[in-house]
């Protein structure tokens, strides 16, 4: 296969994702409303309960809204990734997945293109959220919006690969409610998205350990630091490593037979 047809295929996959994104405006708004509810309602209520001291990468005392904004950005990516990866294996996308797999290009390449394309589609959702958050005093430096871009793509691909991996692995998670309970909530709550980990350590050493091994914590920290123009090298290393490992695993374990088995005999 020539490089030209590989580029051509990626463009086609990306173009289709963008079209679907443009046509499904309701998806965009629900992706925007979810983190805003957290930011505007939850954070306001929680603000009083939780004092935040000066921690990296912030130079001063910050409000709780400012603290959780990067975590909510990661949440947007998490939902987007789980939705798109699960639908790749199970529901309505079945059809387009078949078209995808009829391509003469290697399956691994096609899946990576698909992950990357849905990562790119998540970007407007994130920037839309950050735009609204700006009016609620989440105002990182302008350069931060640029620095955070590569971090967002990397994290989105990791979470997409993780979603694809999980969905080919666990049959029981066929509906999204199951994924919410057993994947999204634990991932999100056992991370530094909503509270700094030292707070968690005060509460429970075991939970602290779980949180600090959760790759999602590193996703959040990578985004948090990038948004303030800093590079968290440890987070970058962990997130890149996990992206590589889970992409490879997801591709190896991917088995279209699983998804098609029910309807296609």
């Amino acid at each position: 296969m020539s490089r030209q047809s590989m580029v051509c295929a990626f463009n086609g996959i990306l173009y289709r994702e963008l079209l679907r994104f443009v046509y499904q405006r309701s998806r965009f708004f629900s992706a925007l409303v979810r983190p805003l509810v957290w930011l505007i309602v939850f954070a306001a209520g929680f603000r009083a309960a939780l004092g935040i001291s000066i921690i990296e990468p912030y130079d001063t005392y910050i409000t709780y809204e400012v603290y959780i904004a990067p975590g909510l950005v990661a949440m947007v990516l998490l939902f987007n990734a789980m939705q798109s990866s699960l639908s790749m294996v199970y529901d309505r996308e079945m059809g387009s997945m078949r078209v995808l797999l009829m391509s003469p290009l290697p399956r691994g390449y096609l899946l990576v293109c698909k992950l990357l394309a849905s990562a790119i589609v998540a970007l407007p959702q994130v920037y839309g959220f950050l735009l609204v958050a700006w009016f609620f005093e989440v105002q990182p430096p302008w350069a931060g919006y640029l620095w955070v871009l590569p971090a967002l793509i990397l994290v989105a691909v990791l979470l997409g690969a993780l979603g694809l991996f999980i969905s080919s692995f666990i049959r029981q998670l066929e509906n999204f409610a199951g994924v919410m309970n057993f994947v999204i909530f634990p991932t999100f709550f056992m991370s530094s998205a909503l509270y700094p980990l030292w707070k968690m350590q005060e509460a429970s050493e075991i939970l602290y350990l779980l949180c600090s091994y959760n790759p999602f914590s590193y996703c959040v920290e990578l985004i948090r630091h990038a948004l303030y123009g800093r590079l968290n090298e440890e987070a970058l290393l962990v997130v890149s490593g996990c992206t590589l490992v889970f992409s490879i695993l997801a591709v190896i374990i991917f088995n279209p037979q699983r998804g098609f088995g029910k309807g296609g005999r």
Partner: peptide
Amino acid sequence: MVFQQSTLDLELSVAENLHYHGSLQGLS
């Protein structure tokens, strides 16, 4: 291949559906 169940994207146009397939087949 023409599959038993339709594999077209309902919300996309005919041209957009065909273009998706064409790009996957490496057509400019």
